[in-house]
């Protein structure tokens, strides 16, 4: 969880804030500005250094996901990571980016995200309009791994911009600039997708789904999960095992009062609280029970089950 500031989230707002324009007044009525669309200068020409991951992120493999990803990388196949929240999808991507030595550009998808937020847009400077690459374009140009987190949250018409990138064409058309960017040989697209959210109204288009190689993630087996909690939260083995048992109880309640069981991330949070001196019961209450449900009856039932988990 505590990466040394390498995880850069580039969204709509972030993209603008990071640009050299930030801080300057933005007004659409600058008299005497020149406008030369034909030769628009590039606003950002980054070396992507900020997106590189220097230290090895902790990742504990649970299956063959690393070899599958590496094989996909070899052929630059787009990868889809499926799995419930907090089971390690994002950490896996960070780990793979580090392992493969590629910069990682992460975009957290949201409902208001437009295609321009991904591909880029014209901005105004005193000199005229300047094209600003969006995070996706940045990755395509300079050969980074572009990770679109929770892709279903974005509107379906937004996600189609990735289509030309994810088939044999491997290019990104920017119709506003009238430019066709062939993908950098090292560019790879990774999306994450939580089937738990998958409801009638939020689902990937079939045409999007079928472009990806998928890796399925789930909560790790109890022994493994305990190891991860121990390592990440700095707890002793017994406490980690108890937390994992509590998580198993809550996961049993999925669909029977809870929408999702406690995630590994939640366990780590509760574990950190407990390792920091908070009594276990209070730590579990604050770290797991309270965040996971608002229903008093479910809380009580979950509380009873949890109190059975520790002596």
């Amino acid at each position: 969880m505590t990466l040394p500031g390498n995880k850069a989230v580039v969204g709509d707002a972030a993209g603008i804030a990071d640009s050299p324009l930030s801080g300057r007044p933005f007004l659409p009525d600058g008299e005497g500005w020149s406008c030369t669309i034909a030769e628009t200068p590039m606003l950002v020409a980054p070396d992507l250094a900020a997106y590189r991951i220097d230290a090895e992120p902790y990742y504990r493999p649970v299956g063959d996901e690393i070899s599958v990803f590496e094989a996909a990388w070899k052929h630059r196949l787009p990868v889809m990571l499926k799995g419930p929240t907090g089971c390690g999808k994002t950490r896996f991507v960070e780990y793979m980016a580090w392992r493969l030595g590629r910069p990682l550009i992460t975009v957290a998808a949201h409902e208001d995200m437009t295609a321009a937020d991904l591909s880029g847009r014209f901005l105004l400077t005193p000199e005229g309009t300047v094209w600003h690459d969006g995070p996706l374009t940045l990755a395509v140009r300079h050969g980074a791994i572009c990770y679109l987190d929770e892709i279903v949250e974005a509107r379906q018409d937004t996600t189609v911009v990735i289509h030309p990138l994810t088939d044999a064409r491997r290019m990104l058309p920017l119709e506003k600039r009238n430019e066709l960017i062939p993908a950098h040989p090292d560019f790879q697209l990774v999306i994450s997708y939580n089937p738990g959210y998958q409801s009638a109204v939020k689902d990937l288009k079939e045409s999007t789904k079928q472009r990806f190689v998928a890796i399925d993630f789930d909560y790790p087996a109890p022994a493994l999960e305990a190891e991860i909690v121990m390592r990440e939260a700095g707890t002793d083995p017994a406490l980690a095992r108890t937390l994992v048992a509590i998580a198993a109880c809550s996961r049993n309640l999925k669909g029977q009062g809870l929408d999702e069981g406690a995630s590994t991330r939640m366990l780590i949070h509760a574990g950190r609280l407990a390792a920091g001196g908070v009594p276990l019961e209070a730590a579990v209450h604050a770290g797991i029970v309270l965040p996971i449900t608002d229903d008093a009856d479910v809380r009580q039932a979950l509380g009873s089950a949890i109190s059975a988990c520790f002596a």
């Binding site: 109880c249 049993n252 029977q256 979950l302 089950a305």
Partner: peptide, 15 residues
Amino acid sequence: EAGLKMVLTALWGAT
């Protein structure tokens, strides 16, 4: 009943 059902589901997996 409702509460017991949830506790048992949590503990023993099956409803």
